[in-house]
């Protein structure tokens, strides 16, 4: 590691100015739980670290126009401990809870999890299923982008140079809605998803599914929004036949690789199994009075 500058600006404007002056040799740091490991292993050698944890707006969780919005530097534990958010989006919390240990979650952020762009990131399929938007601010102003459009491949995002994800915006929660995220790991914790599945659905008064979103992680170069799988649920009572179709559509959407974490064949099968199990939990949560 050669000389490196660390800055912790207190305003977004100052952070953007630092990034624009750094010619692409800067990295944005939120929790740092991925970044520091990459630096220590020599994979990246940034000349400037811009720590965004000291920007108050990026640390806030708020209800705006009926929907939740939270800053990209909110830590996982802060989100988990926010009771109203956790009640509205238990599936997002399922994902956030799986990021590292409690100690890691005390530092790690959802913003970092999304921008690190691991195809196996646990909060990402849950956010995609939730229909979350990411608010991005950069030299050319502000834009809101669906989370599924942020990671483009392992370690790569659609962010332009100098841009920062500042917050995540979730839609207003409709009655009779529920979401869930499950991941498969061979251990019980402290591991990385071999397959991840997030399901979010809304029922009408008669119990028919009116809206559904399904997302899969770790089965392609980035987390996928699987509309065919969602379509299998809409208009049904999320019965066994619909769940079978959901599982088949989820498996069909995978484009996995064989790697040290699992085989292709395994990921195809387990994607379907987990999508179904996540849908069953989401269904049960939607049926709860909230």
């Amino acid at each position: 590691m050669s000389d490196m500058l660390y800055e912790a600006p207190g305003t977004l404007r100052a952070a953007l100015a630092l990034l624009s002056g750094a010619n692409g040799k800067a990295r944005v740091m939120a929790g740092g739980t991925d970044l520091l490991i990459q630096m220590r292993s020599g994979r990246i050698e940034p000349e400037l670290l811009v720590d965004i944890k000291h920007i108050p707006d990026l640390r806030a969780i708020a209800l705006k126009r009926g929907g939740f919005q939270f800053g990209s530097a909110v830590t996982c534990m802060e989100l988990i401990e926010h009771e109203a958010f956790a009640r509205a989006w238990p599936g997002v919390i399922d994902g956030v809870k799986l990021i590292g240990s409690i100690q890691v979650k005390g530092r790690a952020t959802v913003g970092g999890n999304v921008c690190n762009a691991s195809p196996a990131a646990d909060s990402v399929p849950a956010l995609i299923a939730a229909g979350a938007l990411a608010r991005i601010v950069g030299p050319d102003g502000k834009r809101d982008v669906p989370v599924e459009d942020i990671p483009t491949g392992p370690g790569k995002t659609s962010l332009a140079s100098g841009e920062i994800v500042v917050s995540f915006i979730l839609p207003k929660r409709l009655p009779r809605s529920g979401d869930a995220y499950l991941r498969f790991i061979p251990r019980t914790e402290m591991d990385i998803a071999v397959v991840g599945a997030g399901v979010n659905l809304t029922l009408d008064r008669r119990g028919f599914c009116t809206l559904a979103r399904v997302s899969l992680g770790a089965v392609a170069e980035r987390a996928l929004l699987v509309s065919e799988a969602a379509a299998a649920l809409v208009g049904t009572k999320v019965d066994d036949a619909a769940l079978r179709q959901l599982a088949a559509a989820a498996s069909a959407a995978c484009r996995p690789i064989d790697d040290k974490r699992g085989t292709k064949e395994f990921r195809f099968k387990v994607a379907g199994v987990l999508a179904r199990r996540a849908a069953e939990i989401a269904l049960q949560r939607a049926g709860r009075k909230n």
């Binding site: 251990r187 914790e189 990385i192 040290k260």
Partner: peptide, 24 residues
Amino acid sequence: YVYGDDGVLQNPGFLDYRVPVASD
């Protein structure tokens, strides 16, 4: 130990060399 076709070890770390954790 997982090796690639090139004979290079692919999982030289505790993330991908999976010893049991306490809850296992």
